[in-house]
Simulated scan of single mutants.
Amino acid sequence: MFANRIPSRRTVLTAVALAAAACLPALAQAQAYPNKPVTLIVPYPAGGANDAVGRLIGQKLAETLGQPVVIDNRPGAGTTIGAALAARAPADGYTILLGSLASNAVSPHLIANPGYDALKDFAPIGLIGVAPIVATVNKESPYTSLKSLVDEAKKHPGDVMYGSAGNGSPLHLAGELFSQAAGVNVTHVPYKGGNAHTMDLIGGRLAVIFDTTTAAMPMIKGDKIRAIAVSSPTRLPDLPNVPTFAEAGYPGFEVQAWYALYAPAKTPADVLARLSADLGKVMAMPEVDSKLKSLAVKPAYGSAQELGAFTQTEFAKYGKVIKTANIKAD
């Protein structure tokens, strides 16, 4: 008779509760972040130095997260296409952005409707590194120093021309900031992206370009152009004979490109903490340090809190420059 007894309602409920409790650890493990591939949006074309930074970080994050990190190149509109896509993605940690000076501090001031708020629509994960600005001239140029360049600009206002990848590009803003620091009138010549400005520098049609080390270093090492100053606090190991802007008499010239990781705003705090911690692990890898340096990027890991403060400072700094100089996007 015992075998045929019908269990009481209380017995059934107890059994169900015990079974559910037994399943909770497995369920939690199945839902733990991350349990599927993560997409890293890189708002630059494939194949360039910016893309190389994103692919390096993505590859190493995949190792620490235990899930593939898929690189999604979304270039265009001064990086705002990719940044806007990341801002609108679900805030679950499965879509993150390789942010930069352009996407998170410059372009939002230049484009009327970029599709995102650079400060409100992103949660900082961590800073990756910085790329100092380097003043470069034609290798046969008579300008062997910043002083000689400034002397010429003061002697013939407007005659000294500098090139950039376009209105509002980091190169343009670097040139504008330098002209303000030096108190000179130099003429900006914008190009439609690519490397046409560098080709004109090589050809002697431009006097100077204020470029990032990431872009300029291959040309410098290839003896195509000559560096006359770098914006880093100290001289660069790869350019030991090139003085800093501070050494050349312009300590207030503090301009550098940079790279960082962001997630959509409202991403859960525990997910952000995991991503930030794993980025810290990636940045501690010797191979990452050496690879970034080979790309002329100075590794400079910063926590989520530090990146948040840094982003606000850079956003305000370049917003002021753009407004003061009345710079408009192409």
Results as ranks from 00 to 15, higher is better:
235 R>D: 11
133 I>V: 14
122 F>K: 03
122 F>E: 04
107 S>L: 06
250 Y>I: 02
54 G>R: 00
271 V>D: 01
298 K>F: 11
135 A>E: 09
56 L>Y: 03
58 G>V: 06
6 I>Q: 10
45 P>V: 05
112 A>W: 08
267 T>A: 04
219 M>S: 07
143 Y>G: 01
55 R>P: 00
139 K>R: 15
294 S>N: 12
68 P>I: 07
34 P>Y: 02
304 A>I: 07
128 I>E: 08
248 A>H: 06
286 P>N: 06
44 Y>P: 01
90 P>H: 00
212 T>N: 13
116 Y>D: 04
219 M>F: 10
155 K>V: 00
123 A>H: 02
157 P>D: 00
162 Y>M: 13
99 G>Y: 09
121 D>M: 09
25 P>S: 09
91 A>H: 07
58 G>Y: 02
285 M>I: 03
139 K>N: 14
109 H>G: 05
81 I>D: 14
103 S>R: 02
327 I>W: 04
71 I>N: 04
133 I>R: 11
284 A>V: 00
277 A>T: 15
52 A>G: 02
121 D>P: 05
280 G>A: 12
104 N>I: 02
126 G>N: 09
219 M>K: 09
103 S>A: 13
328 K>H: 11
207 A>Y: 05
304 A>P: 11
44 Y>A: 14
86 A>Q: 08
12 V>F: 10
68 P>G: 02
218 P>N: 08
210 F>H: 11
58 G>K: 03
285 M>P: 06
131 A>Q: 07
250 Y>C: 01
305 Q>W: 01
294 S>Q: 11
175 G>R: 10
166 G>N: 08
189 V>Y: 07
66 G>E: 04
181 A>E: 09
31 Q>A: 13
80 T>W: 01
203 G>Y: 00
275 L>Q: 08
89 A>S: 06
308 G>T: 03
176 E>D: 04
253 F>R: 06
20 A>W: 04
32 A>Y: 05
167 N>Q: 08
234 T>C: 01
59 Q>L: 07
296 A>H: 14
237 P>L: 15
20 A>L: 09
128 I>W: 08
67 Q>L: 12
204 G>T: 02
283 M>R: 11
116 Y>K: 12
119 L>D: 04
83 A>N: 14
296 A>T: 12
201 L>I: 09
145 S>D: 09
323 K>P: 04
294 S>E: 12
57 I>G: 01
240 P>E: 03
198 T>G: 15
91 A>M: 04
249 G>W: 05
309 A>I: 04
218 P>G: 11
77 A>D: 11
59 Q>F: 02
285 M>S: 12
294 S>G: 10
95 T>C: 07
22 A>N: 02
198 T>R: 15
217 M>Y: 11
69 V>F: 02
110 L>E: 10
163 G>A: 08
247 E>A: 14
295 L>A: 06
261 L>F: 05
284 A>N: 03
158 G>E: 12
244 T>M: 01
142 P>E: 05
165 A>Q: 13
76 G>H: 08
16 V>F: 15
225 I>F: 14
215 A>S: 05
172 H>G: 06
